[in-house]
Design a protein around this nucleic acid. Sequence first.
RNA 1: GGACGCGUAGCUCAGCUGGUUAGAGCACCGCCUUCACACGGCGGGGGUCGGAGGUUCGAGUCCUCUCGCGUCCACCA
Length: 877
Amino acid sequence: MSTAAPTPRPAWSVPEKPGLEGLEERWGRVWEDDGTYRFDRRAERDDVYSIDTPPPTVSGSLHVGHVFSYTHTDTIARYQRMRGKAVFYPMGWDDNGLPTERRVQNYYDVLCDPSLPYDPSFAVPEPVSERSKDERKAPKVQISRRNFVELCNHLTAEDEVAFEELWRHLGLSVDWSMTYATIDERSQRVAQRAFLRNLQRDEAYQAEAPVLWDVDFRCAVAQAELEDREQPGAYHRIAFHGPGGDVFIETTRPELLAACVALVAHPTDERYQPLFGTTVRSPLFDVEVEVKAHELADPEKGSGIAMICTFGDLTDVIWWRELQLPTRSIVAENGRIASDTPDWITAGGEAAVAAFAQLAGTSVKQAQAKTVELLAESGELEGGPKPITHPVKFFEKGDRPLEIITSRQWYLRNGGRDLDLRAALLQRGHELHWHPPHMRVRYENWVNGLNGDWLVSRQRFFGVPFPIWYPVGPDGLADHAHPILAAEVDLPVDPSAEVPPGHDESQRGQPGGFVGDPDVMDTWATSSLTPQIATGWGEDDDLFARTFPMDLRPQAHEIIRTWLFSTAVRSHLEHDSLPWRNTSISGWVLDPDRKKMSKSKGNVETPMDRLEQYGADAVRYWAANGRPGTDTAFDEGQMKVGRRLAIKLLNASRFALGLGGGDGAARTTDLSLVTEPLDRAMLARLAELVDDATTAFDAYDYARALERTESFFWAYCDQYLELVKGRAYGARGDEAAWSAQAALQLSLSTMLRLFAPFLPFVTEEVWSWWQDGSVHTAPWPDASGLRDAAADGDPLVFEVAAAALGEARKAKTEAKRTLKWPVDAIVVIDREPRVRALRAGLDDVRESANAASVTAEVGEVATITVTLAEAPDGPDV
RNA sequence: GGACGCGUAGCUCAGCUGGUUAGAGCACCGCCUUCACACGGCGGGGGUCGGAGGUUCGAGUCCUCUCGCGUCCACCA
């Protein structure tokens, strides 16, 4: 036992009345000024923890779901930093793509017309919301592509400022010197370079093929952007005419009758077997089509025989391809029936031409009504339409059902039609560590369900252009088979504004000249490269070597099929590796009715209001309670609890650090002073907690780490602090007090660090009262050091002492006395180990319960008997 | 149609490889006022763990079936 007085330390600044107000601003500024979260570029790869942060879409406002999932990542980042890693934690902004285009169109009331020339004098218009009523009536202003892109850049820059402010307020430990935007020059260069390399390795190709087409956006859509919506429709039973009589098909899309190329039934279907190989004639148009057999025809569906049109749905495409049928397309890019009469209709004679003339130029919806009318008149529609609801494919951002049209597009191989590549990508999914593990199934479902390669070209304006031109032949037509590629050193290029090597602008569009590829890349074609963009692939080789492959991709589960998968594809093709070792999948934030919170549902919470109301630590506390992959209810109650926790941390710290009468003499970190069994017991329990929290964090289970830490902390405040208070003030002499004070400081330092990933502001505040530097760069607590300090401490001492104190409190509460009411006697009967443990803490129980005597005896039946004093004139009053 | 997840107190959730009497917070009820904390403290009531079988000395936990909710995927004529 040490008898030396503790070494005095410089005076600490423990505030008289600590509070949470203003902590975000104050510490946010200090962290920025001190570069607390700066990435250390000297660190070798093994000492780096790199995070592929999801770039939020900059086309509106951040919502509470963002706050939720970004907090999860931040707790991991902070943990890894305290474990000694150089954390590479950049932030990106996803300003590329359709959401931005739409926002700009609406915000400024403009439309892009790519045929217009650039107008350098075009000024940023006043937002629609600022305009007068009359001004709003003016027609949309048509502007050139380059002017449009400039407007996109202008608006997103404004949004990005607001986003960064919110993230800083939330306390994300991002290195703000390393932000990127998915439309900035570096991202464009990376996207174009990656594409050119894909092209050179034959991983990218162009093809004239049927694509899913949004008739409003007039743009191709990829499989990953589809969603099914239940729509009303109707079966129409329609007669085709064969030599042996009429054949009835049932269809939901009678308006495509003119596009029919064959009928199809299952090979084993005895009803139709005699027809296979024969031809029948279509109603209205009298076009001869063959009857085919194919496995995909379902005898149970409709009449068991279907008409194949080019194209009504994806099954039509399969039949068309596998049965080698002709193409008869009648739906134009604008979603209307072609206005020119196709030649196969002309061949059907006057009646056919007349019928088609009634449909030409109408929308598919109008065409359907007209076709039904015509069929009814001709007697070829049996019975009326039978209403049904059925799933129909939509672009996830679109308003009308997708059509399928044939057009020339760029594709990237993704295993959709290559079994070896598919197997390799499934293997990548297996190598990746998923948190939680069951999310891998979604990846596998998706990869196994791919039905084609990745369509990466989009007929839009605000995006990364393809760095490609085409020669124009003497006939004035572009020669797509011989693309002219940009040189890597020239990237990024805009082929609609720049000219290919060896050409000049006067040759654009001229016979013998060139044209630029008019399309831009799918937004995912850039987003799938965020690891390469963030780590400086091809831009900063040194950084790249220190940070790639990355350690963590955090993201939401609904975009596993898009973002996670496409990123895995790009990395596999370019680097033959995974882009990251781990992925943590966050759940959704649900409103109290268990519905996903989203803007379109109008149930979003504005995060800044909540941050200001409860404080960032409190909001983070709520978020960190949402376990990985688990949908979590939006719960202000939890934010209140978080706020209370933060306040408790302030007050408990004030107590622990305010002992010793302000002279500083008793303040110490000399652990040899910890001699009291209760103090050692508490430290032994704390060591177990550190092990638990560390294990949980290593498994990406931040929620568990928080829960364990919090639960210990409340027991610490309610029980340990009460048990030790009198002794810490000196009731049992200096050495007993020093033991308490040293244990309090060690435990407080440990708990501040355990809480630091969750409550960065309040922990930093308390840390600053008595420690140098930032708690966020302090080392993560070490259980073995605590065990050394605890010596042979038995956690049971803490438990049984707390139980005895609890019984005394209960007796006082039930007798309606204050907690300071004196106790004559506490008699504890229990089994031997617990009795022994209690005897070690007997003096602390007596002190804290204000008891005249506490005795512990071994017995079979455990009881605690508390005898209160008659009047408040017992000991120590 | 296939797959995954979830059903534990009024609410939000812990309960990990099966082990005394199923836990926490919120809410509710009662009590205590200020020497860390009234933005507080102490205590209390409240659950046949969705249902039915099974394995086991023992099941909230493992197996089978089943019901409900959510989500992802699917070639939806």
